[in-house]
């Protein structure tokens, strides 16, 4: 039972620190961009974690919600020159509608079949949005002059979205819905025997998860000023990374995806820039490989992720230090 406070002091501290970050340091635009991507991945990872980590419905198609959110901001702009900022209203809602429709089909499936169903859904959308040029401008994508040159306003917006996502998880997990999500994850039959309408609560979980993924998508278009189907519906760059961020940080933990996002972006940038120019150029192609190794390591030795198995990590480090002291 959660007897701990709803929001701890250290959590408030982390949020204030994140808010103050741009005022403390004079970051280059490159670092500013990385910060935004870290927070964007916190949103996507946390959203995936709500559905997969807490409710046990392992989605392999989170790009579907991210992409539909991005196009909810992009299509009205492309067709009618409606400001993409409306996407922050429509993005989440559109993704929820998609999630509900998708749920009718994929919630009939369990386990790996559910994963394949969601993966297929995202791929169908990727191809369809590439074909329907009248609606989406096809593979040419949709281009928009971003509102501000400075990156800081975007940083605060995505930070607000991330705070909303994490707060959603925290609120829900203390309520009936949260307990029902966990029960469904652990054993759907046992859950229905204690009166839980599993399909209803899976839909609620899907709705909350897809809302924030859609918001992240809408933000992406507003911030980047360009989207095409291959980017926003990408299997490897969106769906899979959502999963990896969750797994590395810790499935079914509040702060796991946040830690996972930081590790993922740091690792990706370190390799992509070939250790900031200090390593030979061929290293830059290695980030996916190293990330794969890291995932294997985490699954084998830290199945709870960095946050879920934090006690284990601390114990190991502690023992090591002790044995070194004895020498």
């Amino acid at each position: 039972m959660h007897n701990d406070k709803f929001i701890s002091k250290s959590e408030i501290g982390i949020f204030i620190f994140a808010l103050a970050l741009p005022f403390i340091f004079d970051f280059s635009p490159y670092i500013q961009g990385l910060l935004i991507f870290v927070v964007l991945w916190v949103v996507l990872g946390t959203s995936w974690n709500l559905l997969a980590g807490y409710t046990g419905q392992v989605s392999f198609g989170h790009a579907a919600f991210f992409g539909i959110g991005a196009y909810a901001a992009g299509v009205p702009f492309f067709l009618f020159k409606v400001s993409p900022w409306w996407g922050l209203l429509f993005g989440g809602i559109t993704a929820v509608i998609l999630g509900y429709l998708l749920g009718i089909v994929v919630f009939r499936l369990r386990g790996p079949y559910f994963a394949l169903g969601t993966l297929a859904a995202a791929e169908i959308l990727r191809i369809a949005f590439g074909q329907e040029e009248w609606l989406t401008n096809g593979h040419n994508g949709i281009l928009y002059m971003t509102t501000w040159v400075s990156k800081y306003p975007y940083y605060f917006i995505i930070l607000a979205i991330a705070a909303g996502t994490i707060l959603t998880v925290k609120v829900v997990m203390r309520r009936r819905e949260g307990y029902y999500f966990l029960s469904i994850r652990e054993d759907e039959d046992a859950a229905s025997a204690i009166g839980i309408n599993a399909s209803k609560y899976k839909n609620i979980s899907m709705g909350l998860s897809s809302f924030w993924a859609g918001m992240a998508g809408a933000f992406y278009f507003i911030y980047m000023g360009f989207i095409d189907p291959e980017t926003v519906f990408a299997l490897h760059n969106i769906s899979i990374i959502s999963i990896l961020v969750g797994i590395i940080g810790g499935v079914g933990t509040i702060w796991g995806p946040a830690i996972g996002a930081i590790i993922m972006v740091l690792l990706q940038e370190t390799f992509r820039s070939a250790f900031f120019g200090f390593a030979p150029q061929w290293v830059s192609g290695m980030h996916a490989f190293v990330f794969g190794l890291l995932v294997i390591f985490v699954i084998l030795y830290l199945p709870g992720g960095v946050v879920g198995d934090w006690d284990l990590i601390r114990k190991k480090l502690h023992l090591k230090r002790k044995s070194e002291m004895k020498k």
Binding site: M1, Y180, L182, S183, D187, I194
Partner: peptide
């Protein structure tokens, strides 16, 4: 069919 990864109290809470 216990909800294995939840505490005994959380099983009953659910």
């Amino acid at each position: 069919k216990p909800l294995k990864r939840l505490s005994v109290a959380d099983n009953i809470m659910a």
